[in-house]
């Protein structure tokens, strides 16, 4: 049986716990986009995506949209991962390996510091 709500705090707590239930359905968030074309998959994009989801879960980050996209033509630099912080430019990282993911999320997504050595492009 569920715990009864006996105060406004209880309700607010359930609301914040439930927020991520529907949060993927609303816009207005930072985004991580993974290239999942055949080229990306062949280069290991699936493993990168799994790493991204694991790290986000580990750090308890809910307020981000994780999207996939098709081939953008730079197949030789796959796996490609784009990070768009809310209101900022789209930064594209190339040759991303699962072990790079934590750095990209921690430094760039959370703290706004672009991981320069992995960047291959920027779109405004």
């Amino acid at each position: 049986m569920k715990k009864k709500i006996t105060s406004l705090e209880d309700l607010r707590k359930i609301k914040s716990e439930s927020k991520d239930l529907t949060s993927a359905r609303s816009g207005g968030k930072s985004r991580i986009i993974i290239g999942m074309g055949t080229c990306g998959i062949a280069a290991g994009a699936r493993e990168v995506m799994t790493a991204i989801l694991e790290i986000l879960d580990k750090k308890g980050i809910k307020d981000v949209a994780v999207e996939t996209t098709g081939c953008i033509g730079m197949c030789q630099k796959e796996p490609l991962v784009d990070v768009i912080r809310l209101g900022e430019s789209r930064i594209t990282y190339g040759y991303v390996a699962p072990e790079d993911v934590e750095r990209i999320i921690e430094d760039h997504l959370v703290n706004g510091k672009i991981v320069a050595d992995k960047v291959i492009g920027r779109t405004d």
Partner: peptide
Amino acid sequence: GYINPDNIEEYIARDGYQALAKALL
């Protein structure tokens, strides 16, 4: 069409029962 009607938590996540709390409390 936006929430799962069988899940009270999704309703609460979308400000559900906030109005009741406001009125009651």
